[in-house]
Simulated scan of single mutants.
Amino acid sequence: MSTDRFDVLEGAISPAENTRLFGHAEAEHFLAQSYRSGKGHHAILIEGPAGIGKATLAFRFANHVLSHPDPAQAPEEIADPDPNSIVSRQIASGASHNLLHLTRPVDEKTGKVKSAITVDEVRRAGKFFSQTSGTGNWRIVIVDPADDLNRNAANAILKILEEPPKRSLFLVLTHAPGKLLPTIRSRCLPLQLKPLAPGALRDAMTHLGFDLSGPQTQKVLASADGSVSEALKLINYGGLDIMTAFEAILSGQEPGIRKDMHKLAEVLAGKDSETIFEFFVALVTGYVMDEARKAARTGEIDRADRFARLSSGVTERISVAQGYNLDRKQTVLMILDDLRAASRSMA
């Protein structure tokens, strides 16, 4: 059964094709030992922030299982996939009949990736299992990520998890496990991955061909929060410039700051700016929550409350703008005005 191709950031390697994983040796060892024991769980919930290697780990483990279908004969550790092996070639090309990758589908009308994994996608899993039930091979489904399942799709996945077919394995990825249905979480064995340490992040970026020895290295490593995808956004998508402009706007004074605000808003509203706009939204959300936490720790209850409410307001403003396809530039300007007003009023 073919897997869908999915968007990959510029400079990244598709998890299905990536032959290296950095910083998660302990998790790999656990999966290898669990599988070899013959008592592994049928559904594993791989948790952790975006961009730290959850999907790469899932595809590596799937490759390991499909390459060694008898658990008792499987190696004690997961090796780097051999790109020339039949299993690896099938997985990399999306042609494996024993692996199904469920992710947000592409809208045939717009050519863009949909905002959610729909129930129609999950129904593909039912068809997948029925078509492969007579082969005797392992059948593996990677849900990437489960956070994108809409309500109907989540309920459909739950039904399969409650009565899993024989020799089936679900690798369920999540950036925010607390947002998943509790019943889905209860059917899975949690495996938490931590953000990459600076050394592992540097190794991962070197593997992708990036030299992190320049003057911006420390800022990239510090700002990426242990995430390869965040590092790529900082380097390849202008993320460092966005951060610098954002910090200057928050600390700047009128009247010249309005020009900087409009310049930033125009960049974020430009054509093909989805990735950097999502980066900006995460930047804003992180800033607001950090301010709320800092205020709470120092006993500034009014300030903490104001920023906590501002966080909800920013999220709602973005949701409304996206839902009604409102002008993105104006949305960015309103968010920046809200942030500056909150900072001034509590200064």
Score class of each variant (00 low, 15 high):
213 S>R: 04
165 P>R: 04
192 Q>A: 15
165 P>W: 00
192 Q>C: 08
180 L>G: 07
170 F>I: 00
200 A>Q: 13
240 L>T: 08
185 R>G: 04
256 G>R: 01
258 R>M: 09
225 D>P: 00
174 T>K: 01
219 K>S: 13
192 Q>I: 04
190 P>T: 05
160 I>G: 04
158 L>F: 05
194 K>P: 03
255 P>H: 05
199 G>F: 00
247 E>P: 00
212 L>H: 10
191 L>H: 07
249 I>Y: 02
265 A>K: 03
161 L>W: 03
256 G>C: 03
158 L>C: 02
261 M>Q: 13
229 S>Q: 13
177 P>C: 09
178 G>N: 10
168 S>P: 01
243 M>A: 02
205 M>F: 04
173 L>H: 05
259 K>C: 01
220 V>K: 10
187 R>Q: 06
182 P>A: 11
219 K>N: 03
218 Q>S: 14
169 L>V: 00
246 F>E: 09
226 G>C: 09
178 G>C: 11
212 L>Q: 11
210 F>E: 05
228 V>S: 10
241 D>W: 00
192 Q>R: 15
157 I>L: 15
161 L>C: 02
166 K>L: 07
263 K>P: 00
164 P>A: 06
233 K>F: 11
239 G>I: 08
215 P>Q: 10
223 S>T: 14
222 A>H: 07
159 K>M: 10
226 G>R: 06
176 A>G: 00
175 H>M: 08
203 D>A: 15
213 S>F: 09
201 L>P: 09
262 H>N: 07
186 S>L: 08
180 L>Q: 09
160 I>Y: 03
198 P>T: 02
234 L>F: 12
207 H>I: 00
223 S>I: 07
203 D>R: 05
184 I>N: 11
203 D>T: 03
187 R>T: 04
209 G>C: 06
243 M>R: 15
229 S>L: 13
216 Q>V: 09
220 V>W: 07
263 K>Q: 14
242 I>T: 15
242 I>E: 02
186 S>N: 09
234 L>Y: 09
202 R>V: 07
257 I>L: 11
185 R>D: 11
226 G>F: 06
218 Q>A: 15
183 T>Q: 04
249 I>N: 07
179 K>Q: 15
214 G>N: 12
173 L>Q: 01
183 T>C: 11
169 L>F: 02
207 H>S: 12
250 L>T: 14
176 A>F: 08
205 M>I: 05
165 P>I: 10
237 Y>F: 14
260 D>S: 14
209 G>K: 11
180 L>R: 01
167 R>P: 03
215 P>F: 09
201 L>H: 07
253 Q>E: 15
203 D>V: 01
196 L>M: 15
169 L>I: 01
211 D>M: 06
200 A>I: 02
226 G>P: 03
195 P>Q: 04
178 G>T: 06
209 G>W: 08
165 P>C: 06
202 R>W: 02
251 S>I: 12
255 P>A: 09
177 P>K: 06
215 P>D: 15
203 D>Y: 03
170 F>G: 01
237 Y>L: 14
190 P>S: 08
259 K>I: 13
221 L>H: 08
179 K>M: 14
241 D>Q: 14
264 L>V: 11
188 C>G: 13
164 P>H: 01
259 K>V: 13
202 R>H: 12
208 L>A: 12
249 I>D: 02
204 A>E: 03
196 L>W: 04
169 L>W: 01
265 A>S: 13
241 D>G: 14
171 L>E: 10
221 L>P: 04
165 P>Y: 00
222 A>L: 10
218 Q>V: 09
164 P>R: 01
240 L>Q: 11
